[in-house]
Design a protein around this nucleic acid. Structure first.
Lengths: 213, 213
DNA sequence: ATATAATCCAAGTAATTGCTCGGAAAACTC
DNA sequence: GAGTTTTCCGAGCAATTACTTGGATTATAT
């Protein structure tokens, strides 16, 4: 149906600036007015380029949004990979805290834009890059469950892992979207990690009798 | 800004039929084509009424969607109140299963429409009726936490209850939206109840040493 | 039976939308 | 520096949109 890729990539520095300006303009409009107010003419005006220039690079409006999502998600994924590398070898509980914090933190940086993109734009949740991120979270939740020492078995491991990752994904978004100071967000994030641990392992990470390894 | 209420309620049987036909037509279009394809002219055509008749009752498109949401949510709320009455006095674990099942079940009845409404229509999550339903879920999660015998204390009760209800709400939607047979959905629902219990109480509801009362 | 109110409607309007056209200017290539 | 490619652009078009108009038809009240 609709093509979500740019029809042409910029080759010179001048056009790269236009390309970036279009994406940044789109992000600014999304932040200020939401998706319903996003029109191609407005994006061009906000970006300071002619409407024809916009269509030089993007086949349609959706492709602009998709490229913006791709760029934002790339930052999140880079963050997550780094955090994962750091978490390897740590005990499960600190590892879960660490990963959750990174996820929340990297989304919170652009929280208004993410909020609009992930919750108000119909086709964004189905975008490959978004689905891959969710799949990565699912893998993480599997891993934690297996690694955790003395974890209680869950009756339906696959389904439970899927449920946990769905819940975690949505809660990460909710916490990241909240308009609170960073201290409060950090507290909520730690509690989110705790609840995730409780789901996966079946007991509180700081409860008596819960020894790691 | 936009007015979300019908500008006039039908007074005769004839117009009540038109009113209902408009809402049902809108629901059918949402199910088949999603929100982006929803236009007032199309709704009127699908409902078999003139476009002017539609504007006789609704001030704008948003009001039609809002009224549809209100009707669907009323059914869910009725279901939940009934389930809550039945759950009072039960032990926490069966009570959680019971409530969760009802929530999933009542949403699953119209899952395609709910999916579009709650995940693709920008203003729906902010609609009063939707926010009230979420508040009710938050209250439920508080209640379960307090009632559960031997529950482990959570360090930040309010925040944790909020997180649990957010996670539960989103997971209920995800499970209800899934296109699976009812047996599978029931299995997933029970696991969802289990994970919720684990979060709230800090141990598995069926684990050894977990006695109710 | 007449008056009043409720209900219906198709054609049409004004505004907005995504997107194209035709060509000018700037940057690379040789 | 000539030729080629890349980049830029705003006026404007075709399609679609939400919504109005002006009046006909049907029910209700007295």
């Amino acid at each position: 149906m609709t093509d979500f890729k740019p029809k042409k990539w910029p080759k010179q520095a001048r056009s790269r600036a236009s390309f970036d300006a279009i994406l940044e303009g789109a992000a600014r409009l999304l932040r200020r007015q939401g998706y319903e107010a996003l029109t191609t003419n407005r994006i061009a005006a906000e970006a300071g380029v002619g409407i024809a220039t916009l269509y030089e690079f993007f086949p349609n409006k959706e492709a602009i949004v998709a490229e913006l999502v791709a760029r934002l998600m790339a930052k999140v994924e880079a963050n997550m990979e780094e955090a994962f590398a750091e978490a390897v070898g740590q005990d499960p509980w600190p590892a879960v805290i660490h990963m959750t914090s990174r996820a929340v933190g990297s989304l919170a940086e652009d929280r208004e834009v993410f909020h609009v993109l992930l919750r108000q734009v119909p086709f964004v949740p189905q975008l490959p890059v978004v689905m891959e991120t969710r799949a990565a979270l699912a893998a993480l939740s599997q891993r934690v469950r297996i690694t955790a020492a003395g974890a209680l078995d869950l009756p339906m491991p696959e389904e439970d892992a899927w449920l946990i990752s769905e819940m975690l994904y949505n809660a990460i978004l909710e916490v990241a979207f909240l308009d609170v100071d960073e201290k409060k967000r950090a507290e909520l994030t730690k509690e989110l990690a705790r609840l995730t641990y409780r789901m996966a392992v079946g007991r509180d990470p700081e409860a008596a009798g819960s020894v790691s390894r």
